[in-house]
């Protein structure tokens, strides 16, 4: 798939949680990680990343602390909290169920209906 897909509404939070669940990341790192995992198939509005990070932190699913980046600069690192891990789990389960259901609907043939 050449073209980038726009993110579905409400999935950015889940992706961020997944990204930081693999290890602490700064904001730019989160962006890179998601692009890397998705093999550049997802387009993320950079401007909307930070409000999402702030929202997740506000809800207590991630925490942040200042650290040093790869090239020796100060950067803010985000880490998943225990609550965040639970949230990611339920969100992922819900997402999978939903995807199954929708896929089932879309694959149905006239005979099945």
């Amino acid at each position: 798939m050449d073209k980038q897909m726009e993110l579905l509404q409400g999935t950015l939070d889940m992706l961020i949680l997944k990204a930081v669940s693999l290890g602490p990341l700064h904001g730019y790192g989160v962006l890179l990680r998601i692009q890397q995992i998705s093999k550049d198939r997802l387009e993320i509005q950079q401007g909307s990343l930070y409000p999402a990070l702030y929202r997740l932190e506000h809800q207590g699913w991630i925490t942040s602390e200042w650290g040093e980046s790869e090239n020796k600069r100060k950067a803010k690192y985000y880490r998943l909290t225990t609550a965040g891990r639970r949230k990611l789990q339920t969100a992922a389960e819900k997402w999978n169920r939903m995807a199954d259901v929708i896929a089932g609907i879309l694959q149905s043939t006239p005979e099945e209906v």
Partner: peptide, 28 residues
């Protein structure tokens, strides 16, 4: 509780938060 805390922090240490936000976006 985390919400209250972050709100309180935001209100009480507003200028620091603004600075941090600036730095974070600039870093990006």
């Amino acid at each position: 509780w985390s919400r209250v805390r972050s709100w309180l922090r935001a209100v009480t240490r507003r200028s620091r938060m603004e600075r941090e936000m600036d730095a974070e976006l600039r870093f990006h």
